[in-house]
């Protein structure tokens, strides 16, 4: 299967790219890794009139840690994260990366592209929701920083405007007493999640939870941050009972559809199980003091 015809632009500077977006952003699709976009174009689910290939723009492939923040430029590939020591700064990010798509797709697909595509069954949005990420949206008039919760509007829709592109995602690094994890039930490598659960924890000197993040994949019309479950954890000493409570809240908060991957009842149950397991793993990392 082959895509419809389109115009192709491959600017060599960000300014040039943003100028194109300023001029005719609503007819443009940005091509980063293309691992979601191109299959959709081949199946003719997407027929953009212009593709703006950003792969030749220097400086967008930065994967850096500074002042407790991990930042990923829009050309950071999933496998860059898998292979990066720097990315270990956020355990949720690091543990999710190997679960994205398959190893070859990970060589091209990008984290930011996946967020901007906002497939409601995408894994990265849950990771970023659990970790409280921010996105940098650039346009020819400047840049603005948007919280992930405000960025993700609805399935396949974000608050990125036609004249803007996401140039970076920033996520807080875990401290030495923090931990995170991504649990994914998939039927095979490359499958969408039947259920995905992203978790993140920070502990204080007493070992009590000071901040918590929990977000779910594929069990709600979009990725779901379970604030109530997060709040139930904060200020408490971690325990199996506490995590079970968070699992229960998460499983009640989600609203999965029954489909070929399983019944709604099953998926709720897995949310419960994986939330508990994810929190236990996050706790293990936090208590192990790994950085």
């Amino acid at each position: 299967m082959y895509p419809s015809k389109f115009n192709y632009l491959a600017p060599e500077s960000l300014e040039e790219a943003l100028a194109v977006l300023a001029e005719r952003g609503d007819e443009v699709k940005i091509l980063a890794g293309g691992q979601s976009l191109i299959p959709m174009m081949k199946l003719r689910f997407a027929e953009p009139s212009t593709l703006l290939d950003i792969n030749r723009i220097p400086g967008l492939d930065g994967l850096n840690r500074s002042n407790g923040t991990l930042s990923l430029g829009s050309l950071v590939r999933h496998n860059d994260v898998v292979k990066s020591d720097t990315a270990q700064a956020n355990h949720t990010v690091a543990s999710a990366a190997p679960w994205i798509a398959d190893p070859i797709v990970r060589n091209l697909g990008t984290v930011v592209g996946s967020l901007a595509h906002h497939d409601p069954e995408g894994d990265w949005a849950s990771v970023m929701l659990a970790c409280g990420a921010e996105l940098v949206l650039s346009s020819s008039t400047g840049e603005r920083v948007v919280d992930i919760e405000d960025f993700l509007v609805d399935m396949f829709t974000t608050s990125c405007q036609p004249n803007e592109m996401v140039t970076e995602v920033r996520v807080t690094a875990h401290t030495a007493s923090g931990g995170g994890n991504y649990q994914k039930l998939e039927r095979k490598v490359g499958d969408y999640a039947t259920v995905g659960v992203a978790t993140s924890l920070e502990l204080d000197d007493n070992g009590d939870i000071t901040s918590a993040g929990i977000a779910l994949t594929s069990v709600y019309p979009r990725n779901l941050k379970v604030v109530e479950a997060e709040q139930a954890l904060v200020g408490h000493a971690p325990s199996d009972d506490l995590f079970a409570e968070a699992g229960r809240i998460a499983s009640e908060a989600c609203d999965p559809a029954s489909d070929i991957r399983g019944s709604a009842t099953y998926k709720r149950h897995i949310v419960d199980v994986f939330t508990r397991r994810g929190l236990a793993k996050s706790l293990g990392i936090a208590q192990g003091g790994q950085s």
Binding site: L185, R187, T194, R261, G262, S263, Y266, K267, H269
Partner: peptide, 8 residues
Amino acid sequence: MTADRVWD
């Protein structure tokens, strides 16, 4: 025998 069927 997907996981959900086994669980069911």
